[in-house]
Computed example of a mutant assay.
Amino acid sequence: MAAGLITNSLTAAMPPLLLSWFDIGATAIVLIIAGALLAGMFMFVRIASDDSDKYKDLKEMVETIFGTPAHLRPSSNDASVNPKGKSSAKDIAAANPAPFSEPCPACSETVTERDSSCPSCGLQLQ
């Protein structure tokens, strides 16, 4: 019973829960930082999606980080090397594979470069 009296006297002595100036200031600082981060993200998205060349370097960095690296992307230099859309020897060789005649790995039927699948068993060929 004595323990109940001590607890009641302690809770009666405590003031009601009030916000102190420290709590209000800390909350305001956290909200300002969160608002600044949100505004920064919106500005970053607007800059990254801008069509002008105003932020060209930043856009290249974003493309490299989140997309295909610059050295793997097709560039305007490729069009200047090959004017008027003429095909190079490499493009022609890739489009027309060398003639061959080999047995199918599944059924040993003879297949050629013209077959995308085996005429006998239907195996898809690469």
Rank of each mutant, 00 (worst) to 15 (best):
S101C: 07
S120V: 02
R114P: 00
S75Y: 02
S75N: 13
C104P: 06
Q124C: 01
S9K: 10
E109W: 08
G85L: 00
L72V: 05
L5R: 15
S101G: 05
R114V: 02
K59C: 04
K54Y: 08
M41G: 05
M41R: 08
E113S: 14
E113M: 10
S101T: 10
F42Y: 09
F44S: 13
S80Y: 09
V30I: 10
P99F: 02
G122R: 13
V45W: 01
P119M: 09
A93C: 01
A2T: 07
H71P: 00
A36C: 11
I32L: 13
A36F: 10
A36Y: 12
L72Q: 15
D91F: 01
S49Y: 04
R46L: 08
P69S: 15
G4K: 14
R46H: 07
P15T: 09
L31C: 06
I65S: 02
F44D: 03
K84F: 13
R73G: 02
A26D: 07
L38H: 02
Y55K: 04
M41V: 04
F44V: 04
I32K: 09
T27S: 04
A106K: 15
F100T: 13
T110K: 14
R73L: 07
T68Q: 15
L5T: 10
Q124G: 06
R73F: 02
A13K: 07
D53K: 11
S52F: 01
S120R: 14
A93H: 03
T68W: 03
P74N: 14
G40N: 11
S20Q: 09
A34H: 05
S88L: 00
L125N: 06
S76R: 12
K59N: 11
C118A: 10
S9Q: 11
A93S: 12
I6M: 13
A89Y: 06
F100I: 13
E109K: 06
T64E: 15
A94N: 13
A89C: 01
S76D: 11
A39D: 03
M1S: 13
V111P: 06
N77G: 09
A106G: 04
A98H: 08
N77T: 06
